[in-house]
Amino acid sequence: MKVLLIHTDGCSIDVVGKYNTKEEACKQLNFEYERKIEYQEMFSNGIDPEWMKSSHCDNEEAILYINGEEVHVWQIVTA
Rank of each mutant, 00 (worst) to 15 (best):
K27M: 12
K18M: 10
K18F: 13
R35S: 11
C11W: 13
A62P: 03
F43V: 11
T21F: 07
K27V: 06
G46W: 05
S12W: 13
A25V: 14
Y19A: 01
E38D: 15
E50N: 02
K53E: 04
N20R: 15
E38N: 15
C11V: 15
T21C: 09
T8M: 01
Q28L: 06
Y39P: 06
K27I: 15
S54L: 14
Q40G: 02
V16M: 03
S44P: 00
E24R: 10
V16S: 00
V71I: 12
A79K: 12
Y33A: 04
I37W: 01
A62S: 05
W51V: 01
Y65N: 02
T8P: 05
Y33S: 03
I47S: 12
F43H: 12
G17P: 06
L64N: 05
E38L: 15
M1Q: 11
C11F: 12
E24F: 00
K53Y: 02
L64H: 08
E50K: 06
M1Y: 14
K18E: 03
V16Q: 09
N30C: 15
V3F: 14
I47D: 00
I66V: 14
V73I: 11
S44N: 13
I13S: 05
E69F: 11
Q28C: 10
A79H: 12
I66R: 08
D58W: 04
E34Q: 13
D58C: 07
Q40D: 03
V77Q: 11
N20C: 15
A62N: 12
T8R: 08
L5I: 03
M42T: 14
D48T: 03
E70K: 10
E69P: 05
Y33Q: 03
I76H: 05
T21Q: 09
Q75F: 04
S12A: 06
T21W: 03
Y33R: 11
L64M: 00
I76K: 00
R35G: 09
G46Q: 11
W51P: 08
K53M: 00
E50I: 02
W51H: 08
I47L: 10
C57F: 00
Q28G: 05
A62Q: 08
E70A: 12
K22G: 15
Q28Y: 04
Q40Y: 11
E24S: 08
W51R: 06
E34H: 12
D9C: 01
E23M: 14
T21P: 05
E23W: 12
N20H: 06
K18L: 08
C26T: 11
E50H: 11
S54I: 11
E32N: 00
V15A: 00
G68M: 03
G17T: 08
E38Y: 15
E23T: 13
D14C: 11
V77N: 01
C26R: 15
Q28A: 07
I47C: 01
E61V: 12
K27P: 02
E69A: 14
N30W: 10
S44D: 12
V71Q: 05
E69G: 09
A62I: 00
W51E: 04
I13T: 08
K2E: 09
L64Q: 01
E41F: 09
W74R: 00
E61Q: 02
D48S: 00
K22S: 14
Y65F: 06
E50C: 08
Y39G: 09
G46C: 10
I63V: 07
A79M: 02
V73R: 05
N59M: 05
F31S: 13
H56A: 09
I66E: 02
H72R: 03
